Simulated assay, not measured.
Amino acid sequence: MTAPGPLALAPATADALARWLEVEAATRDRSAHTITAYRADLLAFLGFLGGHHGRPATPASLAGLRQTDMRAFAAAERARGFGARSLARRQSAVRSFLRWLSDREGYDLSAALSARSPKYARSLPRPLSPDQARDALDMVASGHDTPWVAARDVAVMTLLWGCGLRISEALALDGADWPFREALTITGKGGRQRQVPVLAVARDAVATYLAQCPWRLAVDQPLFRGVRGGRLDAGAVAAALRRARAALGLPQTATPHALRHSFATHLLAAGGDLRTIQELLGHASLSTTQVYTGVDDAHLMAVYRAAHPRG
């Protein structure tokens, strides 16, 4: 079954979907990528209902949804090859839309909303060891025929490992952000801002890249440039690290994002506390940081007891 397009929807349903997406973007600070994913999730769901019931889904017909409908949708998605994690994410978007619709229209959708999402094992991140991270950056430094490109890739990866930035955050930096001060103001997921201290090694790596970059640095232009002068794409950085890990025999989990994991894990091993690491990473919850660093419950409780005034 192919994903339906917007024309497969009843006008009232298309309007409801558009309004919900506007609310999500405006009130919950959803990124454009998230809104696009939500739209695809709901088009798949509403398109399925149209075929399942033999008529386009309308807000009124959605009021009669039952658990059996949700289970049938889940079964259809599994048959299309969706794994448990992807299906859980898709069902989460569907439930959010249905909750919004029930509040807006006064529908009782408790039966449909009570359907359980599939369970899946959350894969733990696999950070690089300090030696592996250093070796990877050294390999990247000599892994490209064009010196300024190699210096650029090293600078980006140093920001990931040395400052814990997401790759999207590093590539969003502009000329106005340079020269780096003691800390960078980073706007992360959900529009949350945080202050990230900048290590001298990261500042030096960026300075080395800029000294070789053929493109003039301008306040309104990207700090990290692609070979044609536009904003650097994350795929180019991933390719550089992919070549390095192949040369070093590192596992496939050695990705740019693994460098961010490594930042958190190495900081914790050096005595950093989880709350500080949470703030540096820009996580909304401590539980995310716990998973990110591979911290067990015993360590988490030790941090809690040390921090709580009655601990």
Results as ranks from 00 to 15, higher is better:
T2H: 14
P11E: 09
A12N: 09
L17M: 11
W20F: 15
E22P: 00
A26F: 05
A26G: 08
T27W: 09
R28P: 00
A37M: 09
F45R: 01
P59E: 05
S61M: 00
G64K: 07
R71T: 11
R71G: 12
A74E: 10
A74R: 10
F82A: 14
A84T: 03
R89Y: 06
R90W: 03
R95W: 02
W100G: 00
W100D: 08
D108I: 11
A112C: 01
K119P: 01
Y120L: 02
R122I: 14
P125L: 10
D135Y: 05
G143K: 10
G143Q: 05
G143P: 00
G143N: 03
A155K: 11
M157D: 04
L159F: 06
L160N: 02
C163E: 03
A172Q: 06
L173Q: 06
D174H: 06
W178F: 07
F180I: 06
E182I: 01
I186D: 02
T187S: 03
T187F: 01
G188K: 02
G190H: 05
R192V: 02
R194A: 04
R194P: 03
V198D: 03
R203V: 07
A207L: 07
Q212L: 15
P214Q: 13
W215A: 07
R216Y: 11
R216M: 15
R228S: 10
A236Y: 08
A240I: 00
R242T: 14
R245G: 08
L248I: 06
L259N: 06
R260V: 07
T265V: 15
G272Y: 04
D273I: 04
Q278S: 11
E279W: 03
L286I: 11
Q290F: 01
D297R: 04
H299D: 03
M301T: 15
A306C: 12
H308L: 07
P309Q: 14
